[in-house]
Nucleic acid binder design. Structure first.
Length: 156
DNA sequence: GCCAACGTTGGC
DNA sequence: GCCAACGTTGGC
């Protein structure tokens, strides 16, 4: 199993929103690397750290799980959507996504500042200066460490 | 609100 | 294929 970190602005979609709807198509990703991760590398069952960006403070709020196989992001075909892409067609979709389902909200929110100060998390993509990628792979050891900091026990 | 970092676009 | 201009991200 692989591990991931997915960013979301809590004003737009937070861990609490995910816990309410249970499952959510990850629409609107318009970055090729992030798309490739969803399209090529994610497997149903993979776990992801749910990161709140543009939050006060920013940090990891919980855990989500890849809920199914990738499929075309429907918003790319919708002229009414802010994510509409005129260069995409049903025959040639540009943007693929997966659904994420709610797993847990951390008992303890882990602020970015705490992550930066933790030697055990050194090397995480989200801690690199200038990393704007909305989806990044996470090493198992970093994932485990964050679960521990968040006060969440991984189910067997 | 500022601004550094970085991805994308488009003229050439 | 280069690269300047532009737009976006996201911490602060």
């Amino acid at each position: 199993m692989r591990h991931w970190l997915i960013k979301s602005e809590p004003d737009v979609f937070s861990i609490d929103d995910l816990s309410k709807v249970k499952r959510e198509p990850w629409t609107g990703v318009r970055n090729y690397q992030a798309r490739n991760s969803m399209r090529d590398d994610m497997q149903p069952g993979d776990l992801a750290l749910f990161y709140h960006s543009n939050a006060v403070p920013p940090g990891v709020a919980g855990i989500a799980r890849v809920a199914g196989a990738p499929y075309p992001d429907p918003t790319q075909f919708d002229p009414e959507s802010e994510y509409f892409d005129p260069k995409a067609s049903a025959e040639n979709p540009r943007w693929m996504l997966v659904d994420f389902e709610f797993v847990a909200k951390f008992p303890a929110y882990v602020p970015l500042q705490q992550m930066k100060e933790d030697p055990a998390l050194e090397g995480m993509a989200v801690l690199q200066k200038g990393t704007r990628l909305s989806i990044t792979p996470v090493e198992a050891k970093h994932f485990k460490r964050l679960c521990k900091l968040g006060g969440w026990k991984v189910e067997a």
